[in-house]
Nucleic acid binder design. Structure first.
Lengths: 218, 218, 218, 218
DNA sequence: TATGAATGAGCTTTCATTCAT
DNA sequence: CATGAATGAAAGCTCATTCAT
């Protein structure tokens, strides 16, 4: 949609190349982890010369960092569209739960990249100011919603928004991240449409049952 | 059965060597993932010749599989000590939640290895009959507890034991597995004694609040 | 076609590097066989980085195959210069015998490489279309010569050109290929100028005595 | 033939083991050459412990030497059964040719081992007194036959028995040793019964045509 | 005699990275 | 902006060989 002035045709190619590299790298890192990722393979994915990757991103580690930053920026961007504050507290909580679930489901690479980042003890994150700046405003928003819900006499008191957020995320994350081992061990396909719907319903039950006063149904 | 001078720290003990290798490999894989692990480093850890690792385990992949099998065997063994069936249903659920939390906390390598296994799509698991045989009886036990709780008029009906198990695990797993990124982003140390206790309390609240009729307090 | 400052010994010349590697590899394989050849040694011979060998030739086996292809191409090229059809039949046969002898003598690596290829049951050859395309036209030429010689009343009839070719080659090949064991066993140096000349004379006697009518002398 | 007293059953096991190792080693060396042969594989072939091979044969090279010695001893033994001196000269020559052909055909490992020995410049042979002692008496016998044939007015004069022997061997050897490359290049199966018979006939024609006065037929 | 355990050296191959254009 | 050529370091794995019993 972005209009392209009739400039010299090759303008913006640099940026385009960088974006393409980031996408390819993201997929490679997600599929193989940091140690298993191959620069060669990334180059092949983008159909660009390997040297160019170094030209733009300096090293494999830096490239991974760039991918992480981009990944965080993406989810923060998506979170912004939630407008939780416009909703009644119970709906807001449900909305957040659904969003988290849907986002993880739609972005398996997000889960894998996070795992990889944690495997390496988030050493990459520590180096990135940009990511810390991307510090999610979600916790604050969530705190406000919980307060509002309590004021409305709907929510129980004393809920730590960070704990709640981690719980919502954890309920979704573990199911999806460990789908392969879980499937292997329990001999049940966890990724059918039905199974996925059931999981989301269960999550909502759990979370809303917890925040709502005396487990009241919505 | 030939008696062996008592306890001389035996070299040339095949079984001991293999066990030592497994321990060292487990730590290496947990720390660096599959791609990042180094056979040389494992050999150094055990103070045994690298060649011996191949002598006993054939290849890096096979070694990883052996580590996985051992890891699963370990947790299954620990689960066996739980005797959940001897407890009243609410206590059983609490006990399971605490156990899960404590085990993950005490065995960070378990989490990392599972992540690695899932990164590789559990391809290793698929190859191992032994692991599938180690299929956790926990789900069945949990089902029985839920039924008993319901019969006692304590638990709500219709809870899928698998969903519940995955939720308990997920609540613990995500917090610990992603501690580094979470800490970096929220600027809060999640691993202090206090924070850990708070997390466990939150988990119990959530899980018990869910299973108990009208969120009744225990 | 961009002119290049004349003859500066070019580095970064892909083709030159590949050719140099082929030469070095040929010598290494000829001296040590496939199993005994060392990639390190080949790299040292060319004074190029070992990695480059893999960059261009993928694997040791593929490199050996490339060497074989080149070796066959070389002898086919040499055969082309023979112009046997321009000669009278008896001279043509003599010429071919001499050529075979001289070529084997001048290219001991050819013999060794062929032995190696056969040790591995020509598995490499089977994979190479290029070599099968290099199918020697010599047999056909030889057939024509034999026919011509017979028509001239000089040669006996019914000679299979393939058998004859194999015989010529075998007479030369065995003497040279097995020179070391033969020398050791018979205690006679087979590689003196005199011995070599005697061998060629003997070969010509044998072959010509066979093809010519009533062993007639040329 | 050696009678076996009813001694303790396990006696002679040592010798039996050594013989078994030699056989297995011979096959392994023949199949893979010296560099490609694996001690492990030899041990597996004999179903004996690897250590035992070293116990009896000291090293891979020494083992190869032992195999060579045995191989030469075998063919010398076979040659002894020929009794060429009892035959009329032409029959003797034919007999030798047939024997050479049949022996090579029946003992492909002989050819391969000789190639390997020569690849390594017969360094092994040089070290072996035993082999030099096994110096074939064939050349002398052949010389006598040629002399006898000449005296009988059947054979031409001035034939070098060594040259003749090498020729007979070469005609057989090359065809069999290079069967794989020849087949690949000429697209003709050289190992059918028919092809083999044709080869032997051709060889006899060539050799007898050479030794006999004016190519006279036998 | 026979064997399983163990090893050091070295092999092929891989990989992130840089050079030269 | 873009690329093919080249490399040093190290990885996984192999092999002949020795140790201890």
């Amino acid at each position: 949609m972005k209009e392209k002035e009739t400039q010299k045709p090759r303008l913006r190619d640099a940026d385009r190349s960088q974006q393409a590299i980031l996408i390819a790298a993201r997929d490679e890192f997600a599929q193989h982890g940091l140690g298993g990722a191959r620069i060669d393979r990334i180059a092949e994915r983008v159909k660009l010369n390997k040297r160019l990757i170094y030209y733009y991103f300096t090293s494999k580690d830096d490239l991974f960092l760039a991918v992480l930053e981009r990944t965080y920026a993406d989810i923060r961007e998506a979170e912004k569209q939630l407008h939780l504050s416009d909703l009644a507290p119970p709906q807001a909580i449900r909305r957040l739960t659904e969003f988290t679930w849907d986002y993880y489901l739609a972005h398996p690479e997000f889960i894998s990249l996070l795992n990889t980042a944690n495997l390496h003890q988030a050493g990459h994150l520590a180096k990135s100011e940009r990511i810390r700046e991307l510090n999610s405003p979600l916790i604050q928003t969530l705190g406000e919603i919980l307060a509002r819900g309590h004021a409305d006499g709907l929510f129980r008191s004393g809920i730590d928004p960070l704990q709640l957020y981690v719980s919502i995320a954890g309920l979704a994350y573990f199911y999806l991240s460990n789908q392969h081992t879980l499937s292997a061990i329990f001999g049940r396909d966890l990724m059918t449409r039905q199974a996925l719907d059931a999981r989301l319903a269960h999550m909502c039950d759990l979370i809303l049952g917890y925040v709502l006063m005396d487990g009241g149904v919505l």
